[in-house]
């Protein structure tokens, strides 16, 4: 299995960051970057990375199932992550999440039928002073309101 040139370069960079014999240390970021490119961690991706790092596949499975950002299920092109932890919650994050569910017509962990959006309630994303905050893929959106969310979703709907 081949990945894009950029990802292959990233893999090399990640692996070469560690002393010889310690290649396994690159596993967690490799999985995350591979997921960013492929969309989710397919059995092929896991197999490939396991092979490259010479880690048994089942040990990679153990790692994949541990980290909350890693997923074996496909997500939407735009993965809407709404933080509802205390700071954001105090400023209306739970209502924001409810609003997102309504607007998107999906529950957390689901993907819209067109594959464009998926929704996840996430734990603190480090934007406590500027909440409620959400992340769309890796992009932060601070001081969110239901109205701002609607506008954002509309833009993303139109995006190519």
């Amino acid at each position: 299995m081949r990945f894009s040139e950029q990802l292959e370069a990233k893999f090399n960079q990640l692996i070469s960051a560690f002393p010889p014999g310690r290649e396994r240390a690159a596993l967690v970021p490799m999985l995350l970057y591979a997921q960013d490119e492929v969309g989710h961690l397919t059995p092929e991706v896991i197999q490939e990375i396991a092979g490259r790092l010479r880690v048994p596949v089942h040990e990679v499975d153990e790692v994949v199932s541990y980290y909350s950002m890693l997923t074996r299920k496909p997500r939407g092109r735009y993965h809407i992550q709404i933080c509802t932890n205390i700071s954001c919650m105090l400023l209306g994050a739970e209502q924001l999440l409810e609003h997102a569910k309504q607007r998107l017509g999906i529950d957390c962990g689901e993907v819209t039928p067109d594959g464009r959006f998926s929704l996840e309630e996430v734990e603190c994303i480090g934007a406590c002073c500027w909440g409620p905050a959400i992340q769309v893929n890796y992009d932060y959106h601070h001081w969110m309101t239901p109205e701002k969310l609607d506008r954002l979703l509309e833009e993303l709907r139109k995006a190519q």
Partner: peptide, 19 residues
């Protein structure tokens, strides 16, 4: 080395090496 732990927290369980 045929057994490992998958998932985390209260969902953790033991898993066999071939899925």
């Amino acid at each position: 080395n045929a057994l490992g732990v998958v998932n985390r927290g209260v969902r953790s369980e033991i898993a066999p090496n071939r899925g």
